[in-house]
């Protein structure tokens, strides 16, 4: 695999549910050690795009390539086995399960054989705690703690560490910072950088431009199911990106309207809408 071959690439992907077109002609690529930020307002088709990448939906048209080879995912499990892991907004974890147990859900380490297989709590806890600490979350040191007792950022970190531990090469982070405070969000962004340093391809979905600018190498803005802009780090300012997300022209229109109003009303701004 040369450095230039993207790990994951979408080529002209369309997705429609019956007569409703949700995604049009999406082309994206993400390489190892690179963070692709996918920006978009609510309803822009982000969730559908994530689900298509994660094998939940099959594209209606177009191809998905992994390491340059076309692939088809039979389901989320298949995508995961091929190295694509999705971490959802709330970490996709189980608040009332212990850290060790939730880390190994579905792939529990066992001792013994046949019907006498025993869930190996000690190994599970040790591995889980080590995996999280390797990501710099040293506050987690007891695998018996309940996930619900962790902060939002720690839960995200746990979920990311889990994905990496189980061999993820592409990490899809669905609004990981949306529900977090400033400090916690910074925490998660550090984890994203760490994942990137380890050579993972990260797809970071967000509508917070600040967070995207902090870690992104490559940006794509999604509007009404199509890619409205595609640019690299440093090519656009924060204001430009925000404008793009809000539908660019609409914002400019609004500003022009206010301008006209103020000119005709002796510099008074328009009264707030009732």
């Amino acid at each position: 695999m040369s450095d230039n071959t993207p790990i994951l690439e979408l080529k002209n992907v369309d997705k429609s549910f019956g007569p409703i077109d949700v995604l049009h002609d999406i082309s994206l690529k993400v390489r190892a050690g690179e963070v692709l930020c996918l920006l978009g307002d609510n309803g822009a088709g982000k969730s559908t795009l994530i689900k298509t990448l994660a094998g939940v939906h099959k594209p209606t048209r177009g191809t998905i390539l992994m390491d340059g080879e076309p692939v088809e995912f039979s389901g989320p499990r298949d995508a995961q086995e091929k190295g694509i892991s999705t971490v959802h907004q709330f970490g996709g974890t189980f608040p009332l399960m212990s850290i060790g147990r939730s880390f190994f859900v579905g792939v529990e380490p066992t001792r013994g054989w046949g019907p006498f297989k025993v869930y190996d709590r000690k190994t599970a806890n040790e591995i889980a705690v080590k995996a999280v600490q390797d990501f710099g979350i040293t506050r987690i040191d007891d695998g018996d703690r309940l996930v619900g007792g962790l902060s939002g950022g720690e839960r995200q970190s746990l979920a990311i560490a889990r994905a990496v531990h189980f061999g993820a090469r592409v990490l899809i982070l669905d609004e990981p910072t949306a529900a977090l405070g400033v400090k916690q969000a910074a925490h998660v962004l550090r984890i994203v950088n760490e994942a990137k340093r380890r050579g993972l391809a990260v797809i970071f979905i967000t509508h917070q431009v600040m967070h995207a600018m902090a870690v992104g190498d490559h940006f794509a803005v999604l509007i009404r199911g199509a890619i409205a802009a595609d640019f690299r780090r440093g090519e656009k300012t924060r204001e430009e990106i925000t404008d793009l997300m809000a539908g660019g022209e609409t914002m400019a229109d609004l500003e022009a309207q206010i301008e006209t109003y103020m000119q005709s009303h002796e510099g008074q701004p328009p009264p707030p809408a009732q």
Binding site: G92, M97, S102, G106
Partner: peptide, 17 residues
């Protein structure tokens, strides 16, 4: 563990295989 996961979050449980 699967039973706890199923009751905790069905979708995540399914996604975990």
């Amino acid at each position: 563990n699967w039973i706890f996961a199923l009751g905790g979050d069905k979708v995540s449980a399914r996604n975990a295989g």
